[in-house]
Amino acid sequence: MSTLLPQLTAKDFASDQEVRWCPRCGDYSILAQMKKVLPELGIPREKFCFVSGIGCSSRFPYYMNCYGFHSIHGRAPAVATGVKLSNPELNVWVITGDGDALSIGGNHLMHAIRRNLDINIILFNNQIYGLTKGQYSPTSPRGSRTKSTPYGSLDNPLNPLSVVIGCEATFVARSVDVDTKHLAATLTRAAHHKGTSFVEVYQDCNVFNPGAFYYASKKGEKEDNIVYLEHGKPLIFGKEKDKGVRLNAHGRPEVVELNGGISEDDLLFHDENAEDPSLAFLLAQMRHPEFPEPMGVIRNVSRPVYDESVRNQVLAAKELHGDGDIEQLLNSGDTWVVESDQA
C-alpha cells in the first residue's frame, strides 16, 4: 500500500472517560496492554470495535477510544456476531468475565466458538462476580466462601480452556494480568489468528477475591507454578529451569526433575498446531498445585471462518443469480392479469 497509516500509540486508544475500577484491580493492567498492542497491528483505529457483556471487566469498551458496544449480561458473543455479519472488516474484540462468559452466556460462548467467527474473546477470569460484589462464579474452586456461599460453594468449577477446546476452538491461550510482556505477546498472537481466538486472563479482583492467582503471578512463586508454552519446544519450568513435564507410560503428564537421568528430549514437546485437540486438552487439564499451569498459546489451528463464509455465500448467490432482480421476485410463481374492462 502506498498510503502510510499514521503511527498510532497507546495514547490514541485512551478514551476521555475516567477509568473506574477499584485500585489495583487486574483490569487496569489488561487495559494497558491492550492499548499497547493495538497500535502495533497496523490497523486504523476506526476499524476496532470492542463488544462486552456486563461485569466489572465488561466496562472495558468505555475506556478504549475506538468503536464500542457495552451490551447485556452474557450476550456479547451474540452481539459481536451481528456486528461482524453486518460489518466484516471490523476487528472485533469481545471482553467478558467468568460469570458473563461461562454462566449466563455459556451458550453464546459455545456457539460463537464453534462457528469460528473472526473475533477475539478475552475472558477476564477472577473466579468471582466482581460487579455484584462478590458471589462465587462458575470458575470459583469448590468450597469457596463468598457472600452467597458462607459455608462454602458446592459446585465444581469449570475450566475455561477445557470448555472452549470442547467447543472446537481454533485458538486457545492463557496469560496473567500482571505478566505484562507475556500478556501483550499473547494478545498480539490472538489478534493475528483468523477465526475465534480465545484468551483466558487470570485477573486479580483486589476487592472480592484478592490473591487468587498469586501462585501464578508473584515473582518467586510463579516460576514453579506455571510453564510457558512455546511451539516445538519442550515443557520446562522452575526457577532454575530444572523441571519439566513428560508423558508417562499411560500417556499422562508428570512433572520430572531434569538431571542426569532425564534430558530435554524426554519431555513433552508443545505442538500448538496439532489438529487433534487431545494435547491441548491435556495441557488445559494441568492444574495447580499438581502441575505447573501452561501459559501462552495452547492451540492454534485453521478452520473456515463463519463471517467470511456467510459473506461468500451472499457473493456466490449474486454470482449465480445476478444481483437480486426485484421485478422477477415480485412476479415469481403463477401470476394472472385482471383486465380493467372486466365487467
Binding site: F69, V79, T81
Partner: peptide, 8 residues
Amino acid sequence: SATCGAAF
C-alpha cells in the same frame, strides 16, 4: 442480540 449488533 445479534440484531442489536448488526444494527450497530
